[in-house]
Design a protein around this nucleic acid. Structure first.
Lengths: 224, 224, 224, 224
DNA sequence: GATGAATGAGGATTCATTCAT
DNA sequence: TATGAATGAATCCTCATTCAT
C-alpha cells in the first residue's frame, strides 16, 4: 500500500545508483514506514470522522503508535493533512498522470470524459481520503490546503484541457468553466461514492451525462 | 450584561391575547425569544467555524446568555443544528414556499429554473447557515440531519416537480435525477456564495446553464 | 489568608454599603472565593517549584479544583502570575502602604531604613510568593510582569524617596541608585528568607548595614 | 555552527603532551569533543530559555547531535547543568585563578575589588551561562547545584580572602559577610549584564562602590 | 428560567528518557 | 558510538454538559 516509493534496492541504505543523495537519512527505513503507516491511518480517520473531528491521538492509535511518535514525523495535524494530500496527488500522478498528456489532443467529448473521469473515479474509490481532502469543507483555513494542492492541481489540469478545446474563450471564462466543471465533478463524485453497485454505476453515468450536456455546446459538438 | 431581558412580570403567567389555542404555553414568549436568539447565534457560529469546531459555549456567548441557559432549551449541540435546520426550512417555506405550488405546472424549463433557483439562491445569501447545514460535510453522523430535514425536503420537492415533467420515468430514475440536480445545485451554490459581484452573477448564470442543458433533453425541450 | 478583600458583609451579597456597584456579578461570591483559593494555591506552587515548573494542573490540584475551573477564572498561567502579583501588591499597599507616605520626610537614614525595610521583610516572610515574583528570574518574557508591576512599583517608590533626599542628583543617577538599592534589597531578602532564627536576624541587620553604608554618603550623613 | 571553538589544541587531555597518565582513554578524544559541544550548546540554551524550559532535545539539536548521543555522555538534564557549572568553574580558575593567589595579600580595598571583580565580570560577560547557573533561581532543587559547585567555590574563595583581612572575626561572621558580599555581587552582576555601554560601566562602578562602602569599615580603611 | 461555577475527559503537543539498529 | 525512532506521561487548555443558587 505504502511501498510506492522505493521499490528495488536494499531496505536499509538504498542501493548504489544514487549514492550521495542518501546521506542525511540513514535510519529512515523505519521512519518511512512509520510515515506511511501514519498517513494511512490519517486517511482512515479523516474519512471516518472528518478533519476537524479527527484527533492526532486517534490517528496515532489507528497507526498503532504513541502520540509522541506521530509528532516525530509531523509537527501538527494540518501537516498530516497536507502531506496526505501531497502523497495522494503524487500517487495519482504516478498512477494515471501520464495517461492524461495525450488525452486532450482532440478526442470526441464523450471519450474525453471517459478518459478523464474513469481513472479519477476509480482512484477516488481506492483512496476515499482524496475526496475528503478535495471537498475539505471541514478544514479551517482550508484554502491553503485545498487550492494550493489537490484542487489547484486538478482545476489547472481542467483549464489546460479546456483551453485546448476553447482556444478563443477569454481566460476568465475558461477559469469559471473549469471551476464549474470541477464543482460538478466533486458533487457527482460524492453521489458516486455514497452509492454502491448498480446505483453507483448509474450515478457515474449521470455525472458524465451532466458534463457532456454542459460541455458539448462549448466544444462545438452536437449534444442532442 | 446578560440580564437585559428579565423585565418584571409574574414568574408563571403573563399576557392573554391568544388564550385558547396557546393556553399551556403562555409565558413561553420569553422562551421563544431565547430560542430565536440562540439559533441566530448558532447560525453565525456555524457559518464562521463550522459545526464541529463550534462550541456550545461560543454559541451561548454569541447569544449573550450563559451556557446553562442554552441547555435549558436544547439538550445538546446536535439538537441545535437540527432545530436550526428546521427553522430555516420553515422560514424558507414561509417565505417562498407557496410560490412553488403553481410553479411546476408547465413552465418552460428556463423559467422554471429561474423561478426555483432565484429564490433559493437569494435565501441562501440571506441565510448562509442554510448552505452550511445542507452541505454539512462537517457534521458527524450527518446523514440524520441532512437527509432527514433540509435535503430531503428539497430533494423531495425536486422529485415532485420532476415527476410532473416526467410522468413516465421510473421512480428510481426520478430519484436519481433529483439527487443529481440537488447535488449540482449545492455545488453551484458553493461557487456562487464564495464569489461576489459580477463573478457571483456569472456563476449563477452558469449554474442555470448546467441545469438547463442537463434537463432540457429530459423534459423534451430543445436544449441546443 | 485570602480574606483580605471583603472583611465584613454577608457572605453572599456584600452588605449594603456599596449597593449599586454589585450588579454585574451576583453569583460571583463563589467565584471570588475560588479565585482567592487559586491564587493562594498558585502562591504555594510558585514558591515550591518556581514559575516555569509550576503546572496549571498542579495549581488546580493544590486548590482542590479541576483544571477546567482554573481556566474559568484565568486564561493561562501567566495571567495567574500577573493577578497574583497584583493581589500581593494591593495587599502590600493596603497593609503597609499608608505608613510610607510620611516616612520619607526627613528621618535619619537608619530610621528610614528600618521604617522601609522592616515592613517589607515582614511582608515577604508572610508572603514568600512576593519575593518569587519579584525575583522572577524564571518567568519567560518576565519584563512585563516584573517591571510593570511589582518591581516598578517598588523601584518607583524608591526613586521617589531617594529624590527627596537627593534633590540635586540627575534623574538617571537617581534611577541607577534606585535600581541598585532594589537589587541589593532583593539579594539581601533572599539571604534573609533562606535563613531562620538568629541567622535571619543577622542577615536582616547585614542588609541594613550594606544599604546604610551605601547610602549615607549620598544623603550626606556620617556613615563612619 | 557549534564547533567554532575547536581551534587548535586539545582542550583538556587529547594531545600527547601528558601521555602516560591518560593511557586508557585514547579514543575519548571524540568523546571530549562531544562533551564540549554539548556543554556549549547547553550554555547557549540555558542562557536563552533558562534551565527548566531548556529541553534536552533542544540542547542536542543545538549541539548538532541526536538525543541518544547526549544521553551517552550525560545521564540526565541535571547532570548537564552540573557538568557545565564544573567546566565553567574550571575554566574560570584556569583563566584567572592563579592571579588570585597573590591578590589577597594586602592590597588596598579599592584595588582588591578591582582585582577581584573585573575578571569576574569580564568572565561573566564572556560566559553568560555562568551567571545563569550562579543565580539559578530556576533550577529545582538548586541548592545542590548552586552551593555544591559554583557558588561554594566562589563563596569559599571570598571567605579566604576575607579571613586574610579579618583574622580576628568569628568564622560564622566571616561566612555571613562572605555570603552577603556574594549576594551583592550577584545582584550587581545582574544589573551589569542587563545593561550595555556606559550604563553597564556605571553599574560596574556602582557595584564597586557598594562593596567598598560595605567593606571599608570591616577592613579598617577609611571609607569616607 | 437564568446564571455562572464546576467538572473531567479529551484535545494538541512536548519532553526526558530508552532502545533497536 | 551515533543515530533517530519510540515511548507515555505530563503539559496547557477546551468543551459538552451538569449543578447549585
Amino acid at each position: 500500500m505504502q511501498e510506492a516509493k522505493r521499490s528495488g534496492g536494499a531496505p536499509a541504505a538504498g542501493g548504489g545508483t544514487d549514492a550521495g543523495t542518501e546521506k542525511p537519512r540513514r535510519r529512515q527505513a523505519r521512519g518511512e514506514r512509520r510515515i506511511a503507516q501514519l498517513l494511512d491511518a490519517a486517511a482512515n480517520v479523516f474519512c471516518t470522522t472528518g478533519y476537524t473531528a479527527a484527533s492526532t491521538n486517534s490517528i496515532a492509535r489507528e497507526a498503532g503508535v504513541s502520540p509522541g511518535t506521530l509528532y516525530q514525523f509531523f509537527p501538527n495535524k494540518e501537516a498530516i493533512a497536507i502531506e496526505l494530500g501531497d502523497q495522494l496527488l503524487r500517487r495519482w500522478r504516478e498512477t494515471y498522470g501520464q495517461a492524461f498528456l495525450p488525452v486532450h489532443t482532440s478526442l470526441p467529448l464523450a471519450e474525453l470524459l471517459d478518459a478523464v473521469l474513469d481513472p479519477l473515479i476509480e482512484f477516488n474509490q481506492a483512496n476515499p481520503a482524496f475526496a475528503v481532502l478535495m471537498q475539505g469543507s471541514d478544514i479551517p483555513g482550508h484554502a491553503r490546503l485545498q487550492h494550493e494542492k489537490l484542487n489547484t492541481g486538478l482545476v489547472e489540469r481542467t483549464e489546460e484541457i479546456l483551453a485546448g478545446y476553447l482556444p478563443d474563450a477569454p481566460p476568465a471564462e475558461v477559469a469559471r468553466t473549469a471551476n464549474t466543471i470541477f464543482a460538478i465533478f466533486k458533487a457527482g463524485l460524492g453521489l458516486i461514492l455514497t452509492h454502491e453497485g448498480a446505483e453507483r454505476d448509474a450515478y457515474t453515468k449521470e455525472l458524465k451525462t451532466v458534463l457532456h450536456r454542459y460541455l458539448s455546446p462549448l466544444v462545438g459538438e452536437a449534444g442532442c
